[in-house]
Design a protein around this nucleic acid. Sequence first.
DNA 1: ATAGGGTTAG
Length: 568
Amino acid sequence: MKRFKFDTWGYHICIHGFGCWGDLDAALSLFKEMKEQSSVSGSSSIGPDICTFNSLIHVLCLVGRAKDALIVWDELKASGHEPDNSTYRILIQGCCKSYRMDDAMRIFGEMQYNGFVPDTILYNSLLDGTLKARKVTEACQLFENMVQEGVRASCWTYNILIDGLFRNGRAEAGFTLFCYLKKKGQFVDAITFSIVVLQLCREGKLEGAVKLVEEMETRGFSVDLVTISSLLIGFHKQGRWDWKEKLMKHVREGNLVPNVLRWNAGVEASLKRPQSKDKDYTPMFPSKGSFLDIMSMVGSEEDVARAEEVTPIEDDPWSSSPYMDHLAEQSNRPKPLFALARGQRVEAKPDSFDIDMMNTFLSIYLSKGDLSLACKLFEIFNEMGVTDLTSYTYNSMMSSFVKKGYFKTARGVVDQMGENFCEADIATYNVIIQGLGKMGRADLASTVLDRLTKQGGYLDIVMYNTLINAVGKANRLDEATQLFDHMKSNGINPDVVSYNTMIEVNSKAGKLKEAYKYLRMMLDANCLPNHVTDTILDYLGKEMEKSRFKKASFVRNKPNNDSSSSPS
DNA sequence: ATAGGGTTAG
């Protein structure tokens, strides 16, 4: 087929466009064509420049292949291209989003060394990545550097910091920072309030949360659906549905709350109709036979084989990046499991019946354990012909089914997700792994990890914790330990959930010394224990007591035996 | 170009 040929500018625009769209294949095939054109025409007027490579590096990062992007980057530098500000920004943000903070910081250093001046947004990305990797100390250091270098902090900066402090077990510091900023009347916006409201809800301090929402209104910030969602879910978790009216009184501005409540009433009315109950305990994935079934979701065997197979790279001394050429030549690239971006979020449209409201109520029914209500809600949406549900919807549904052991239903949700071309995100996979663990298929869980790392994908802290829990509960302690170390060496610090899980699975397996080791490690790492730690330590304490008693009676019965290996 | 709701431990 003959087609109009682009000039450099045309190729450039298209590669950039496809890249922003996340279409790696389209971008790469245009890149290939561009190279062919430049060699055929022999003219130097067509050829990839640094901007082309920026676009390609960008799309590689977007589809979750930061590893590949880094290889291209190394080759590019060696080939004598001059990276510009965009190259650095694209790479650093790609690394931050996939929690490769070591790479991000290394490139950040190079950038400064080469005389580029980082701006507020770049610092914000670095701060966010550092805090999501649970590295509080490093984040504080980074913030100090930012201030010292005279880079102005913005609202975003403080929102990232406050949220990060909350998530890193430094709630007090988060509140202090919030109050300080509020007093100064600076750097506080609607998102700041929303972050703090969510934290109060998490801590069960609903009274304070509602007060804050009221204050938010008085200060002229509009209370959006995200904030209302946090509150409603909080109310429901504590069985305080009567607080809806309170909310109504507090949030006068706009008609969001009345809309939400009216919508709720409407849904609850339709829910009164009889519903189909198709629950069973069939495994989400057939436990007999091959792994093919799950693997078809996680990428086919051939994909992985292809990814592992090393195609010889033709030696082209003029190529800026042989690796990029190699990627462009690959006919069937393995499909990445999930892209960098999380599942899409729908904008809140207060005047319409929209998916966000559906999601809010879905969360509420699910958090209450009202699976049948949630199912019915799902049915209603199907009847209405709404097909563009977000992965948020599917993830919530699936998670609840998995928790209750309704694996077949969960499988149905996954299937429907595929039919509707709804992209799975990292949370989807977290839920799938949780399901595998609950089904006693921890072996499959580690296969998923293998596949993910081989395809150059990334894991977040929730996925590590989910995996550790799955293999730990299956008594595969070695694998749990391996995962724990894998997480650390990949630049993500274990958090309170990781430590609690390690302490728990080791105690349950009778490895009391090991359990104690993780407790020490947790305290040494400055990770503050929480109420869950208390419960687990209670159990550990009793077990240690028992073992001491056993040992003592053993010594009593055999006084000649020297017990030099008593635990501290 | 950067931040907040869903997914992890008892």
